[in-house]
């Protein structure tokens, strides 16, 4: 099985967001970057499928700045075979531009499966996987939390409001992964050492201008300072009164 996994370098979820002086971007000083958590599920799934098939390769593809090489190395340390960095100065807000560049890279790769995370935790666009699938003309199932593959066909389960959709599809296919699909492994020391010697190709990439223009990045409005209504069950009557008369939500 030949599998490509698209990964994104994102700020750690614990990051304290400081807005840069341009008022439009994140101030990256002191920010720790990680492999997007949803992409860990995708990498893990690819490794398991390759191990199960006993043959094939797992190729990691990331579009990002030079520092995204480190993120690719993390996936290589988990056990992927080689990496490709589509190097850009900065990742645009328009997911379609990212999808176009990824699709061009993936088109003639001879993959059985192309995996994505369901979303990147920074911009939460929740779109690049299905866009790449459409650009390639491949079948696609998004937000997969359970997966069975057999003889060129697959069954995936995805959460929808109030239930689970069971979806059948043929291979090759694009899938995007949700939490619950698997438990991603941690890179072992041996893997980290091995990753340093694995091939990582850097391809300078130019993106189109995109159709989304950032006007401003601002802190969310502070929630009005809340108040402690009281202590213990004695405060409940007052709480209900406030919900009814002040907040008017009952």
């Amino acid at each position: 099985m030949n599998i490509a996994v698209c990964i994104k370098r994102v700020p750690d979820s614990e990051t304290r967001v400081k807005i840069a002086s341009d008022g439009k971007s994140l101030d990256e000083a002191g920010v720790k970057f990680i492999l997007n958590p949803y992409d860990e599920f995708a990498v893990e799934e690819a490794l398991r499928r390759r191990e199960h098939a006993g043959a094939g390769a797992v190729v990691i593809v990331a579009l990002g700045p030079p520092a995204a090489q480190e993120t690719i190395r993390t996936a290589l340390a988990m056990g992927a075979d080689r990496g490709v960095l589509l190097q850009v100065e900065r990742i645009p807000p328009d997911g379609l531009e990212v999808a176009r560049a990824l699709a061009a890279e993936l088109r003639d790769g001879g993959y059985d499966l192309i995996l994505f995370g369901k979303l990147a935790i920074d911009d939460a666009n929740h779109q690049v996987g299905p866009m790449v699938a459409e650009l390639l003309g491949w079948p696609c199932v998004s937000t997969v939390a359970h997966l069975e593959l057999e003889q060129g066909r697959g069954i995936a389960e995805r959460e929808i409001e109030g239930g689970v959709e069971v979806v059948a599809f043929p291979l090759p296919a694009v899938l995007t992964t949700d939490k619950g699909l698997n438990e991603p492994r941690y890179p072992a020391l041996k893997g980290i050492m091995a990753a340093k010697k694995k091939p990582l190709e850097v391809k300078p990439t130019t993106l189109g201008p995109g159709g989304l223009e950032i006007l401003a990045l601002t802190p969310p409005p502070e929630r009005q300072e809340g108040r402690i209504v009281g202590e213990g069950p004695g405060a409940v009557v007052e709480l209900v009164r406030l919900l009814r008369e002040e907040a008017k939500v009952l």
Binding site: V17, L26, L212, E213, I214, P219, P220
Partner: peptide, 20 residues
């Protein structure tokens, strides 16, 4: 068309113009 969307896990708001 101009939109606002929460990013960075709701720790910031992004204001975008759609030029399309």
């Amino acid at each position: 068309v101009t939109v606002v969307r929460p990013v960075y896990a709701g720790k910031a708001l992004l204001r975008l113009r759609l030029n399309a």
